[in-house]
């Protein structure tokens, strides 16, 4: 039973990683095109992309932490 729940937990982590990867490719990579019409400065675009990527990764870690808390609270308090 513990193994099945752990496997589900890892599937959740996998889905979150793929979601973040897809978000970065679909929305963050072409930022220059739909934000500055392809005319933005390279350094400015890179800085904005890096900032968004870091925020998204922090959100991912916080999400994983929340998932962990829910799971641990349920299992270890039994």
């Amino acid at each position: 039973m513990a193994l099945t729940i752990l496997a589900l937990f890892m599937t959740g982590m996998w889905v979150m990683i793929l979601t973040v990867a897809a978000f970065l490719v679909i929305f963050v990579a072409p930022l220059d095109t739909y934000l500055f019409g392809g005319q933005g400065g390279r350094l400015t675009i890179s800085a904005i992309q890096a900032a968004i990527a870091i925020i998204v990764v922090i959100v991912l870690v916080l999400g994983l932490n929340r998932l962990k808390r829910i799971y641990l609270h349920k299992k270890l308090q039994q």
């Binding site: 793929l18 990867a21 897809a22 970065l24 490719v25 679909i26 963050v28 990579a29 890179s46 992309q49 890096a50 990527a53």
Partner: peptide, 12 residues
């Protein structure tokens, strides 16, 4: 390599 595509980030 972000699975759905690549992000070219030479400095980062």
């Amino acid at each position: 390599n972000l699975i759905f595509g690549r992000a070219y980030i030479p400095l980062l």
